[in-house]
C-alpha cells in the first residue's frame, strides 16, 4: 500500500520565549490508502493539535505533512484553499452540535462543501447530499431539518455524511463518539467500522478511549506527552503493550479487559509510567 498521509518529525509549540510550550515533539506517523489507524492518547497529549496541524489549522514549527505525495504543510492561503476544495482530506469534529451551523438545514450542511468546490448544479448537489445521508443510514426526510431537531447520534452521522459527500481519501475523526451517549456511541462506532471500506477511504480515528478505537482500526499509534511512544497493529497493542503508558491504557480500558484490572495493578502501572518518564 502506498502512503497517503506522511507526518514527518512534526513539532508544534505555543507561546514565545519563556512562555513557550512544546505540544508536539517531532511526531512521525504514516497512513496508507484505505487503512484505518487509531491515534490514542490522554487529554492534553497533543492529539487534536496533531489533527489541526495535518489540516493546516495550526502552524507547525518543524517537520512536514505530506498528503498523497504533495507537501501540504506551509502552503500559502490560496494553495491551501485549493487543496481543501479538492475534498480529499475531510475532518469530523468531536461535537456535532458545535460543528453544524444551528440555522442551516441538513441538506445545506451536507451540500456546503460541494457548493464551495463548485462545478455541480443545484439538483446534483441535492442528489449527492441525499446519497451521503443514506450512506450513514439516515432517511431523506431529515434533509429539511436543522441540527436542533436531530438526536446526538443523528447529528454526528450528518457530520460524517457531510465529510463523505466530497468523496474523501482520508477521514480524520476527532473523538467522534466522545460527545455521545452510550446507545448513540455504539451506533456511530458500528457505522465507522464499515464506513468507506468499499471506496477505500482511509481513517485516522483520534480518541482517548482505547475501547472505542480498538474495534474500528487496523493499527494504533499511542501519543503520550507530544510523542508517539508506540505504533503497532491493534491486536498487538492490546495483547502485548510495550510502553508503560500503553500498558496503563490497556489496563484501564474496561471495555477491553471486562471490568478492568484492579486498583492495585493500576497503581503499579502508574508507578511504572512515572519511573519511565
Amino acid at each position: 500500500m502506498s502512503e497517503l498521509l506522511e507526518v514527518d518529525g512534526v513539532e508544534v509549540s505555543y507561546g514565545r520565549g519563556r512562555a513557550e510550550r512544546r505540544i508536539l515533539h517531532g511526531v512521525s506517523l504514516s497512513l496508507a490508502a484505505g487503512e484505518s489507524v487509531g491515534l490514542i492518547g490522554e487529554t492534553g497529549s497533543g492529539k487534536t493539535t496533531l489533527a489541526r496541524t495535518i489540516l493546516g489549522l495550526t502552524r507547525l514549527t518543524a517537520g512536514s505533512v505530506r498528503f498523497d505525495g504533495e507537501t501540504v504543510s506551509g502552503l500559502g492561503a490560496r494553495a491551501l484553499r485549493s487543496f481543501r476544495r479538492s475534498g480529499r482530506l475531510q475532518y469530523v469534529f468531536q461535537d456535532p452540535l458545535q460543528s453544524l451551523d444551528p440555522d442551516v438545514t441538513v441538506r445545506d450542511s451536507i451540500g456546503e462543501g460541494l457548493r464551495i468546490r463548485g462545478g455541480l448544479t443545484a439538483p446534483d448537489v441535492a442528489t449527492r447530499a441525499e446519497a451521503a445521508l443514506a450512506s450513514v443510514g439516515l432517511p431523506a426526510d431529515l434533509l429539511g431539518r436543522v441540527p436542533g431537531q436531530l438526536s446526538g447520534g443523528q447529528r454526528q452521522r450528518v457530520a460524517i455524511a457531510r465529510a463523505l459527500a466530497l468523496q474523501p481519501r482520508l477521514l480524520l475523526l476527532d473523538e467522534p463518539v466522545s460527545a455521545l451517549d452510550a446507545a448513540n456511541r455504539i451506533q456511530v462506532l458500528d457505522l465507522l467500522r464499515t464506513l468507506g471500506t468499499d471506496q477505500g477511504i482511509a481513517k485516522l480515528f483520534i480518541s482517548h478511549d482505547l475501547g472505542s478505537v480498538a474495534g474500528v482500526t487496523d493499527r494504533i499509534a499511542v501519543l503520550f506527552r507530544g510523542d508517539i511512544v508506540e505504533v503497532g497493529s491493534t491486536r498487538d497493542i492490546i495483547a502485548r503493550p510495550q510502553h508503560p503508558y500503553t500498558r496503563l491504557l490497556v489496563g484501564s480500558a474496561t471495555t477491553l479487559t471486562g471490568g478492568g484490572v484492579d486498583r492495585e495493578r493500576r497503581r503499579e502501572l502508574r508507578q511504572a509510567l512515572a519511573d519511565h518518564g
Binding site: Q98, S99, I116, R117
Partner: peptide, 22 residues
C-alpha cells in the same frame, strides 16, 4: 471562532462565503 465556520474554511470557503452563509 465557531466550529461550523472552521468546518466551512476546511471546505475551502472564502471569507466572503463565510460571512454570507454563516
Amino acid at each position: 471562532h465557531s466550529q461550523y465556520v472552521e468546518a466551512a474554511q476546511l471546505f475551502g470557503a472564502t471569507t466572503a462565503w463565510v460571512v454570507r452563509k454563516h
